[in-house]
């Protein structure tokens, strides 16, 4: 468990941000599911609850999701269920349990950019932007490979397009971390394939995505794209699986996801 000397519940982002950068040990609290695993000694814990960041709203052909929105909110949102073939609710549904997802937040999940993240992989195949209070708005892909810099993630925003998408994850037990996860989407012939839990951070498989965009998602192409993804990405070994198995899984899951997208688009 972490401990903290002070607690701040700021009413403005400026105040939150200034406090955050004023001392190294000052920390933003998300749902704390992850933070509590560590033993961090915080100077000031910064709670964003009073900044109105719990929302999923539609604006200007985009969906905005506030940083304090929970994973369960994503799962049960009718808007998200009917967008992108229900990609996001499907991506988060196996994360531990309902009670857990009622606590863990979008901000904490996206900001920490964990390798195993289901949400990150899914978001990578959407038109997703991340808004940081200090760093401004940027595409998720850029944020995802960036370094950790102290900032406050205020929201993410998704282009509400007619994209078809599919999500596949392989887990040793149903509510365990992914051994590997894959998201695939297709919009007007543009394909995107992302692979996470390699176990490194999720990445877009550029070659596979390009190939599909040029050749289409027919069955033989699905297999070829799967091979490309397996070849272009790096995989590692951890407690849950070896690199070799992950590479093999990548090929299977990409193929399955592409086939699924093809069927629903």
């Amino acid at each position: 468990m972490f401990s903290t000397r002070d607690l701040l519940q700021p009413e403005t982002f400026e105040q939150a941000y200034e406090t955050l950068i004023s001392r190294r040990s000052n920390t933003v609290l998300g749902g704390c599911a992850f933070l509590r695993l560590g033993r961090k000694k915080m100077g000031t814990a910064i709670d964003l609850s009073k900044l109105g960041l719990n929302f999923i709203r539609e604006a200007d052909h985009r969906v905005e999701i506030g940083a304090m929105t929970t994973l369960r909110d994503i799962e049960t949102s009718p808007l998200l269920a009917s967008s992108f073939s229900g990609l996001l609710p499907r991506a988060v549904r196996n994360i531990v349990g309902v009670q857990f997802r009622n606590g863990a937040t979008v901000g904490g999940s996206v900001f920490s950019r964990s390798g195993f993240s289901d949400l990150l992989t899914a978001l990578l195949v959407l038109d997703c932007e991340v808004t940081l209070f200090h760093g401004g708005t940027m595409p998720l892909a850029e944020f995802a490979c960036g370094a950790y810099e102290k900032d406050i993630l205020t929201k993410i925003s998704l282009g509400l397009d007619a994209r078809a998408a599919a999500y596949q994850s392989f887990r040793n037990t149903t509510s365990d971390f992914s051994v590997l996860n894959v998201a695939v989407s297709c919009l007007g012939g543009r394909w995107l394939v992302a692979v996470g839990a390699r176990p490194q951070r999720a990445r877009v498989a550029v070659n596979a995505s390009e190939f599909l965009s040029q050749e289409g998602g027919a069955e033989t192409n699905a297999s070829a794209a799967a091979l490309l993804a397996g070849a272009e990405l790096s995989f590692g070994t951890n407690m849950r699986a070896t690199a070799e198995f992950r590479r093999a899984l990548c090929q299977v899951l990409v193929k399955r996801a592409v086939t699924e997208v093809k069927q629903c688009s």
Binding site: N172, T173, S175
Partner: peptide, 15 residues
């Protein structure tokens, strides 16, 4: 290393 329910997976009800 498998010293938590996060790493040591006992079967859940879907397993």
């Amino acid at each position: 290393q498998t010293d938590t329910f996060m790493q040591y997976k006992i079967p859940g009800r879907e397993d």
